[in-house]
Amino acid sequence: MSKPEIFVTFRLTQAEKDLLKQYCEQASRNQTDVLRELVRSLHRRLKS
């Protein structure tokens, strides 16, 4: 897999941030991995 070269910054509400944090803790994964997986899943959704 290639090394990531792009940084993306976006705003969340506190509730969204808390939800992301809770999910990451439950899944024992970091936020970068979770968000990267979400972005990759969009490719599958576009094909549908």
Rank of each mutant, 00 (worst) to 15 (best):
M1Q: 12
S2Y: 04
S2E: 13
S2V: 10
K3P: 01
K3I: 15
P4C: 02
P4D: 05
E5Y: 09
E5R: 14
I6D: 03
I6W: 04
F7V: 15
V8K: 07
V8D: 00
T9G: 14
T9M: 06
T9R: 13
F10I: 01
R11C: 04
R11M: 06
L12F: 07
L12T: 06
L12S: 04
T13R: 05
T13V: 02
T13S: 15
Q14Y: 08
Q14S: 10
Q14T: 10
Q14V: 11
A15E: 14
A15P: 01
A15W: 01
E16H: 04
K17S: 10
D18P: 01
L19N: 13
L20V: 10
Q22I: 06
Y23A: 09
Y23N: 05
Y23W: 07
Y23L: 06
C24S: 09
C24G: 02
E25G: 08
E25A: 12
E25P: 00
E25K: 07
A27C: 06
S28H: 15
R29I: 05
R29T: 07
R29Q: 15
N30L: 02
N30H: 01
Q31A: 08
Q31P: 00
T32C: 04
T32H: 10
T32W: 05
T32R: 05
D33A: 13
V34I: 06
L35N: 03
L35C: 01
L35P: 03
L35S: 00
L35I: 03
R36G: 04
R36I: 07
R36F: 05
R36V: 08
R36T: 06
E37L: 11
E37F: 10
E37W: 11
E37I: 04
E37Q: 11
E37R: 12
L38W: 01
V39D: 00
V39E: 01
R40C: 11
S41Q: 11
S41D: 06
S41N: 06
L42Y: 10
L42T: 08
H43I: 13
H43C: 06
H43T: 14
R44G: 06
R44I: 08
R45P: 00
R45M: 13
L46F: 09
L46W: 10
K47I: 08
K47W: 10
S48L: 08
S48A: 14
S48R: 15
